[in-house]
Nucleic acid binder design. Structure first.
Lengths: 214, 214
DNA sequence: GATCAAATCTTGACAACGTTAAAATAAGAT
DNA sequence: ATCTTATTTTAACGTTGTCAAGATTTGATC
């Protein structure tokens, strides 16, 4: 009476509804991620994620303690792809430290505008007491380190570490604020005589990094 | 059999539960605001706000179409006090345009750190389709204009308006990002050798406004 | 002042949600 | 083959957003 032996390949292929899903935790994370981007945070319920993954309402509780825990997993995964996006964006920017920082910032803002729901989940305070999710904290710290390192490369001979940190914070605040304003504040690049949000980000960062010639 | 004639003074005095509240809409906004800061957004339900205002669960629907409409009212009111905070902060900063901008930024970030829940509601994308609430849009635009004007005062002889707008956006992004990171990212001023978030904001903005002496 | 319409509030209900408990089923070890 | 454990389901509880129907108050009109 066994069902056909499938090698745990699930995805969307077939309606094979075996009792044990086999890989439910990642499937729930992906389902939640999809709902987040297509329907928004308000439509992202645990039950909806379970439905999308093809399991019952209570199944997620064997893999996540809470709804918040699932959201934390989504956010952590988001931070990892976010980190990758920044690294990749910089790798195409050559070797000039300033241009690399610009590319990092552009990747930062691009990620936010392309995944607004996810970005808000990662930074928007939706997940209360996020410090109790070590995975999330680590992923967030790693993504910050990319930006910090990029800023550090900008001023090689920096003696005092506090100045560097302030500089990194400055860069971080700028791109983070820009990202937030673009996805929430209804910022329109055309209003600045530019075509895309990427161009606006680039213009803003370039202007910053090349102080008035003196 | 009339109850004692009270001149519509409500507040918290007495348990006078007359059938008509008299001023329910503002009372609900304030109740929501209080819940937001004391218990967080997740505990802010329409029913909880109604309970706190001393009315039944369905009473709010005679003053707000939705839960979202109530949130929008809270956010709009937040933007107005936010605007006032920035104006007042600048008024104590003298006449130097740069110092006024710094004061504006400090007020911006201070407001966020003192009212994190409200600030997130104002900017965090919680209110979907916020463009359908004209009051909210107007209040938000007014708060932005304060910052824009302050930046404009910084460079009096600015010919092209686009350059000014980019400059304003730069300033806005920075303080906004800083505010967001402080309430969500767990930014610690001590980590930068400073005592308070205000000091950190000031240090960052001053550094920005005084380019490396040349 | 009596009457009537509008505004305001309440009770009661419904579906959806987060969450838990108990029971059912599959997987793996002995 | 049996037993233990992990996984999933069904059923249920309390809470929420929201609506419909009825009750109460207010204010205008005669």
């Amino acid at each position: 009476m066994k069902s056909v032996e499938q090698p745990a390949s699930e995805s969307l292929s077939g309606a094979g509804q075996r009792y044990h899903h086999g890989d439910l935790a990642p499937a729930l994370v992906q389902a939640a991620r999809e709902i987040l981007e297509t329907e928004g945070l308000s439509k992202l319920s645990l039950r909806a994620a379970a439905r999308r993954a093809g399991v019952s309402q209570a199944a997620p509780y064997h893999h996540f303690r809470d709804k918040t825990a699932l959201l934390a997993a989504v956010a952590a995964e988001g931070h990892r792809t976010f980190t990758r996006a920044m690294v990749e964006g910089m790798s195409q920017a050559g070797t000039d430290p300033a241009e690399r920082l610009v590319a990092c910032g552009v990747a930062y803002v691009d990620f936010a505008t392309h995944n607004p729901g996810l970005f808000r989940l990662m930074f928007g305070g939706t997940i209360e007491q996020c410090e109790i999710f070590p995975d999330l904290v680590a992923a967030g710290a790693a993504s910050y380190r990319v930006l910090e390192d990029t800023v550090a490369a900008l001023t090689p001979g920096q003696s005092e570490p506090e100045a560097l940190q302030i500089q990194a914070l400055d860069a971080w605040s700028t791109v983070h604020g820009l990202a937030m304003l673009m996805i929430d504040g209804g910022l329109d690049p055309v209003h600045y005589g530019l075509d895309s949000t990427s161009d606006l980000t680039r213009a803003l960062l370039r202007r910053r990094l090349t102080p008035l010639s003196c």
